[in-house]
Structures are given as C-alpha cells and as structure tokens.
Design a protein around this nucleic acid. Sequence first.
DNA 1: CCCGATTTGTAGCCACGGCTACAATTAAGG
DNA 2: CCTTAATTGTAGCCGTGGCTACAAATCGGG
Lengths: 152, 152
Amino acid sequence: MPKSRSYKLVAEPADLPSEADQAHRFEKARSAQATALLEDYAELISDLIGTEGEARPTDIARRLGVSHATAIKSIARLKREGLATSKLYRGVFLTPAGEMLARRVRARHRLVVDLLVAVGVPQEAAEVDAEGIEHHVSEETLRAFAKYLGRA
Amino acid sequence: MPKSRSYKLVAEPADLPSEADQAHRFEKARSAQATALLEDYAELISDLIGTEGEARPTDIARRLGVSHATAIKSIARLKREGLATSKLYRGVFLTPAGEMLARRVRARHRLVVDLLVAVGVPQEAAEVDAEGIEHHVSEETLRAFAKYLGRA
DNA sequence: CCCGATTTGTAGCCACGGCTACAATTAAGG
DNA sequence: CCTTAATTGTAGCCGTGGCTACAAATCGGG
C-alpha cells in the first residue's frame, strides 16, 4: 500500500525508484558531501608534510583557493574531529586518524583518476573531475574500479 | 620565482600540481557542488510531473529525504534562479530553463550510471554513487563516457 | 636587536541548507 | 456544509564554509 495519497491507484512508475530508495540515495550523497572537506584537507596536509616538510595554513589556503581565514576555520574543525593538531603559530599536523584518512583518500583519488583515464577521459579533465567525484565513490564501487584496472 | 617563501630552494615536487592548478580544481568542485542541489530538484520535479502529473512540495521532500520546509525553501531558490514557478498552495512547475536543465541532468545521470555498470559496478551501488558523482562530471568527461559506451 | 613584512589567528558578516514549531489553506468525508 | 486531516507556507534556529577587516605573533634583514 502506498505511503500516502491512497486514492491514487496508478502503480509506482517503473522509471522512478521507490520513495525510500531515492531518499536513501540523496541522504548518502549529502553525508558524503559533509565529509568531503575534511578529506580534502587531510589529503592536502599529508601531501604538504610529505613534500615540503610542513603544512602551513597559508599554503593550505592557497592550494585550496580559499582565504587563509577560511582555511584556519576548517583546520579548527579538523582538530575538533580529532584528525589534526596544531599549536598557536605553528604548523598543522595530522593525528594517526588523520593520517589514515589521508592515505585512504589519496589511494581513492588515484584509483578514480586512473579509471577515468582508462575509459578515455583526458588526463587534465580526469584530474579536475576526480576532485569532486572521489568523495562519492563507495567502497564497493572502488573495488569494481580496482578490478577493472586489473588491480584486484 | 615562487610566490612566497623565496628562501625555499627546492623545486615544486612532481607529485603535486601547481598551486594555481590545484586551487582551480578545488574551485571547480565547489562550484559544481553549489549547483548540485538545483540540479537534483529540477530533475526530480521533471520526473514527478512526467510520472505523476504534478510535482508537490511534500512529494519532493519525501523523495529527497528532507523536511517539507527544507524543500519549500529550496524551491524558492529555484524560483529565484528562474528555474521553476509556483503559485501559493499549487504545485511546482519548471520554466523552459528548468526543463532544459532537467533534461541535461537526466541524460548525464543515465550516462554515469551506465558507465559505472559497464566497468563492473553493481547496479544498486551505481545508482547510489551516481547521485553524488554526476554533479562533478564535466562535459568533456561525459563525452568520453559516451564514446566508451559506444554512443559517440 | 629591532623594524617591517609575512604569517597566523580572531571577529563578525553572509548565504545555504538542514531542522522544528506554528499558522494558513486546501481537500475529503460524513 | 462543516469539520478534520493533509498539505502548504512562514518564522526562526543551527552549523557550515565562504569572505573581509583587524589584531597578534613570528621571522628575516639590515
């Protein structure tokens, strides 16, 4: 029985998922979006520490294309979430949890770029699109990507 | 010459894109995210009108998994952006611009799902992930997908 | 060692997109 | 036709993630 509008007798159209399924999908997308920023910061901080030896708020801000104030506020959120640490006027560091997240994110990012390239997307477009796409790729999809790329 | 920290003599590490490039990618991802909500609403409204004959705020809200108040506020934004129209206590309709957007979004959504399935992602995972991924797929990448699927 | 530039941090603003609570309107049934 | 349920709309709150402007600390060169 339909959840509402019981006077409507037509069946659920085949080309639309059930209300519950559809709502569930959107909720997933929203929750993925909520963690996207944390993931981007974690990966970037890890990269900067790896290549520059340190991750400084202004560098982070420049790389993300935001003001330093925005970066500092986001770093504060990372600290609240237990992913990063920093002392006043010192650089930013990742906690073990932050490092783990960074590693996962970096691996996922590479897989996404590689898959895009493998199906014929030009390198630069793949890099750009992957930056947004990666946050919405589930573990299951990731496994499929790895398998497709022969890294199962 | 580096934009800052001129005392640093090491070259830009090869595994990180230039600051400008990276910032540009993140900006792209952010702007895509900003339009994602409008795209989801436009597609859903179009679907509902097509299958149910009308698009009512509560149905929209249920399908998106948000409160009706949230849906109504978002519909107001669609109206501000010239994508939808509605009169008090009547259903929601799309403007020609809204319809165009909906068509583009629907086609893109299908292409993304089909590509995911084609590379081995299970149907349901493809549907879920596509909901978040689709907003970040550029025209160029879309063309590559179509070509890969033999629909060039 | 101090002065000025750079970096870091803080304060406060805004729009967005969630929410609950309440008001108004419409629609259905007796 | 009137009452009640459902729907629609409004008000106001919250956290997020942008921003600018200003303050504080650090760092490098003279």
